[in-house]
Design a protein around this nucleic acid. Structure first.
Lengths: 130, 130, 130, 130
DNA sequence: GTGGTCTAGACCACG
DNA sequence: GTGGTCTAGACCACC
């Protein structure tokens, strides 16, 4: 089971926070392809969230290709299929573009960003659970 | 005048899109400190948005320290004050942390991210207008 | 529920008057951290103000760290985080500086101010509702 | 002549800033009763502000009983007449009440406020010009 | 149910 | 002319 909080930061939608936590667990190797993913009912109890919210989390992760549902049986973590090259480029440009602009308006230098980005990847490996 | 779209992507708040466009103009040097910023009414006409929405854009940018209002006269682009060191660190960790996770779940390597990040900064200088 | 007026003084923005009333309720202990804060719609009905105005009140108090929104569920009073030392000093100097000048031009002595200030703090405890 | 800036803080109405500067000059003894107060034309030139704004400053100070106009001749600083006892009480309660609430929500203790208030009065005497 | 965004249009204070 | 406030009412996403 991945280490979910029961407390959520205010201001961001709950389901997004859970989706992110799941992604982090996957990215850090805490949950691996083939691992069983909690059912909507389980998730809803564990995290004390509304079943609708839990349902949305699962749907979102399926949408992004990170979960595979074997209906009536189980839900399983899946290695995300390689993105289409064009979609990948769009995503890369979009996210780094935003980051660059936000950093620039805050007077943050590219080097600082690179350094911190490495630190973040490092932390994913060394500190898998939040 | 900065190059504003009149068409807005669905899903993201209009005022946020405009705020981002303004930030990009500032980050790229298209709008420099001391430059006059379009008035609420001008913006509202140019972008064909409601004056209240335009007002919110201005308010947000003032809040973030990027605009300075000389009441009744004009609104002027301002060099953002240096962030508090602690706030800066929080922002850096938060944004790179998210980026790292999202990249990892998409099977994107750190190197690709670094490369694209540099490209984004480069593009800010070479292609200021969207 | 905190004791809101339905009548507002002219000259000061309605939303600011409501913000102040809410702060007073918090300062006096009438509303404590963890208490539920009226929803935008409730406030709008109770005070007979436009929902947008009520919304602005909530947003302002969140901004100042006095409210916490649990999206879709409730809005809750929060213990304000301790101010940064530098910000605190700036606020103190600014507000007492103004007060000293205004008092001096009215021929009011420092002692009177001190006495009344204590009285105001006292009244916060003894007479929470306006 | 009192030491007026030509630069004004953004966000606050210009005329209010000038009125306050004048009051501070009076409170600190820099301008004393009987001293000549600059004419609208002079003020407008010295401070590089709109004559309408300068006019409003004078009007406001007359209103508050701090200036006396000898029409066509000169404008003179005047010792403010003693306030009516009831008006004084209202002003005292109002201003200390606000201060107490704002301080309380910021976690500032009464003692800090008293100390800073004394410091502000002290500074009025020792550093008359802003 | 909740907060948040957006439009439309009026009004005010300020310069 | 400027920014700011307020009202009225609609729509959306989230829980």
């Amino acid at each position: 089971m991945f280490p979910f909080n029961t407390s959520f930061a205010p201001g961001e939608a709950v389901y997004e926070q859970v989706v992110f936590a799941a992604k982090r667990a996957m990215a850090s190797g805490l949950m691996r392809p083939g691992d069983r993913f909690p059912s909507v009912r389980q998730m809803s109890q564990m995290l004390k969230i509304n079943p609708n919210t839990a349902q949305k989390v699962t749907a979102r992760l399926v949408e992004e290709g990170l979960l595979e549902i074997h209906p009536g049986i189980e839900t399983v973590v899946r290695k995300a299929p390689p993105m289409e090259e064009s979609a990948k480029r769009r995503w890369l440009e979009e996210s780094t573009g935003r980051l660059a602009v936000e950093a620039a308006t805050r007077g943050i230098l590219p080097e600082e960003l690179h350094r911190e980005l490495d630190a973040s990847f490092e932390q994913l490996k060394t500190t898998p659970n939040l």
